[in-house]
């Protein structure tokens, strides 16, 4: 496994980029936040990375960062390049790449809703899934699902006969 020469050539044109192979037909590229749009443009224009498969967001709360991963596929090279950028968790603002890859609109809107990252220039930052949700962006690591559930819902207190019988004899559900 190595990085194809054509890809290396293109990557070398950009500053502050680290690339390494990450398995069969996978290349991982780490890039500074300001360099990502140029990278995506270049990959798209020169090597046919026209398909934005997904944008993933990871909340590295202990580092105070969000990691955004742009998975782009080239039908031509048969290669998936995952471009990783790290942005500050606060204020959590980044630029939209909607103008380069139209599908970005969907993923950016989703990440905004789930992580609270705002994408400047995105076509829509409106809610899509959590229309009635007033709380914090739930995919953030500091949102505790279990706590939310405990506070919101109640456990069913089953009282079947067999349990009553066991309780009469001194047994019961263990905590």
């Amino acid at each position: 496994m190595s990085i194809p020469a054509r890809l290396n050539e293109v990557l070398n044109e950009l500053p502050a980029i680290q690339a390494r192979p990450a398995g069969a037909r996978r290349v991982r590229v780490d890039v500074a936040p300001q360099g990502l749009p140029a990278l995506l443009e270049l990959l798209k224009g020169r090597l046919g990375f026209i398909h934005l498969s997904a944008i993933s967001c990871v909340d590295w709360i202990e580092d105070g960062q969000f990691e955004l991963v742009y998975h782009v596929w080239s039908h031509e090279m048969k290669l998936l390049v995952s471009c990783h950028v790290r942005i500050a968790r606060e204020p959590g603002v980044y630029v939209s790449v909607h103008d380069i890859h139209e599908p970005a609109g969907f993923f950016e809107r989703d990440i905004h809703e789930m992580f609270g990252v705002h994408f400047d220039g995105a076509p829509s930052m409106e809610k899509f899934i959590l229309t009635s949700w007033e709380g914090p962006p739930p995919m953030r690591k500091d949102f505790n699902t279990r706590k939310h559930v405990e506070e919101t819902f109640e456990w069913v207190d089953y009282r079947p006969d067999w349990l009553k019988d066991i309780e009469r004899k001194g047994g019961g559900i263990e905590s």
């Binding site: 349990l163 066991i166 559900i173 263990e174």
Partner: peptide
């Protein structure tokens, strides 16, 4: 949930606890 059932045998030395899953 594990249910404690006093009527069942208990034998810590053999690793047997008087409880069963519900």
């Amino acid at each position: 949930r594990m249910v404690h059932i006093p009527a069942l045998p208990s034998d810590p030395a053999k690793g047997i606890r008087p409880r069963r899953p519900a």
